[in-house]
């Protein structure tokens, strides 16, 4: 249940950026979360109302772009989609891979008023 920490991290970023912009609240928040980031989307939804209560995000619309996992094989350079961290290369079977997408966990943009 580290999703609450994640949600509070999002709140902190939103509070800071909203204050910097001299705005009052956030109308839309865009997040980018990879499937390998270690975040359970349902848990994030569950903790969200408690985390954003009495903050600039309380009534904000939340848009999450989910980025699928992608890796590049160290041995044969094949780029392939991965669902799990333990997926091996479909071409050569190697476990050595660099993850090139799917670890993202970031606030992309805010629409403030």
């Amino acid at each position: 249940m580290h999703e609450l920490s994640v949600a509070l991290g999002i709140v902190k970023i939103a509070e800071d950026e909203t204050a910097k912009a001299g705005a009052e609240k956030v109308e839309l928040i865009e997040l980018e979360i990879g499937t390998l980031a270690g975040v359970d989307f349902e848990s994030l939804e569950f903790v969200w109302p408690a985390a954003v209560k009495d903050t600039v995000l309380e009534f904000a619309l939340k848009k999450i772009s989910v980025l699928k996992g992608k890796a590049k094989c160290v041995d044969c350079d094949t780029v392939f989609e991965i669902q799990h961290l333990y997926d091996s290369c479909p071409e050569c079977g190697s476990n050595f891979k660099g993850i090139i997408q799917g670890k993202e966990l970031r606030v992309k943009a805010l629409e403030v008023v």
């Binding site: 994640v6 999002i10 902190k12 970023i13 950026e17 966990l105 970031r106 606030v107 403030v112």
Partner: peptide, 18 residues
């Protein structure tokens, strides 16, 4: 002016502080 919508391109990692 302060009631206008403004888009902030944040592009910040959520675990940045940690």
């Amino acid at each position: 002016a302060h009631h206008q919508k403004k888009v902030i391109e944040v592009e910040q990692d959520i675990l940045h502080h940690n």
